[in-house]
Simulated scan of single mutants.
Amino acid sequence: MAKNLTLERAQQALLSHQFEEAHSLFNKLIEKHPTDPQLYSWRAQALIQLNLHSAAESDIDKALSLEKDVTKRKEIADFLKSLQDEIAYMGAEPLKPYCTSLYKAAVAGDLQQVKTLIEKGADKEQGQNARNSNCSPLMIAAEMGHLEIVEWLLDAGADIESKVDTNLWDGPRFWTPLMKASHKKHRAIVELLVSRGADVHFVDNVGWGTVRAALVDPGTKDWEAAEDLARWLMNKGAPITEHAQKILGKIEGYRKK
């Protein structure tokens, strides 16, 4: 049970762009479970975010040496190939991590602290470095579903079109707060952002728009609610990209079964 709880915390830290904390938690897990290949693979992802590529490659090699399942070994090998591409993108220099107090308050959902920090002159845009780009407090609040904080940051003048490299390991992918909220299915935040002028037409550099970000494969959990959100965005003018069309096609086929 303790391992599962720590792993859940470590994974959440990674997904919330708290890369140093994730790294620390995976270190502790590996100390107690040194023969678990999955832990090395997860820690490598935290190391990538910190630009510690040599250490990440070592972890992937370790995971490969420990993994006995052929299918999982192939997944790890594919990950190693993507890591090599990542190194070419990110460069060799380690990141100089930063994480502002305002960002931490936004992550925690602490509206009063957000207000206090803004009133004291905190930079509304500086948050935490994710890969080699800045994840703003508005971005993380939209991703985590903190509606009141999103609204307050918008009222305070936060950039509604701020961008962050959101992809964790296979190359740059720049998203807006609306993309993040759509992907996490935070309907109230999506509607708020659109009502405040967020660009529903935005498509990222690999061809995902807000519609595709909102969609999930049919048959998976809450797929109908995801489709409803996607169609709401379509009605607001969001484009149906090639990626979105494929999922919509799957949905139609699923319904005909």
Rank of each mutant, 00 (worst) to 15 (best):
L14K: 04
S16C: 12
F19Q: 09
E21Y: 02
H23D: 13
H23A: 02
S24V: 04
L25H: 00
N27A: 02
L29V: 06
I30V: 03
E31D: 15
K32F: 10
K32T: 11
H33P: 02
T35H: 08
P37S: 09
Y40F: 14
Y40I: 01
W42D: 15
Q45R: 06
L47C: 07
I48R: 04
Q49F: 00
Q49S: 11
Q49H: 10
L50Q: 01
L50W: 07
N51R: 13
L52K: 10
H53D: 14
A55G: 04
E57V: 15
D59E: 05
I60N: 02
D61E: 14
D61H: 10
D61W: 00
L64C: 00
L64V: 06
D69P: 03
T71H: 02
R73Q: 09
E75W: 11
E75K: 11
I76V: 09
I76S: 01
A77L: 12
L80W: 12
L80G: 06
D85Y: 07
E86A: 08
E86N: 10
A88I: 15
A88K: 11
Y89R: 13
M90G: 06
G91V: 07
E93H: 04
E93Q: 13
P94Q: 03
L95R: 11
K96R: 09
P97A: 02
T100Y: 03
T100F: 05
T100R: 01
S101H: 03
L102E: 00
L102R: 03
L102C: 13
L102K: 01
K104G: 05
A105M: 13
A106K: 04
A106Q: 05
V107S: 01
G109T: 12
G109Y: 08
L111S: 02
Q113L: 11
Q113N: 06
V114C: 01
K115Q: 14
L117C: 05
I118V: 14
K120V: 00
G121V: 14
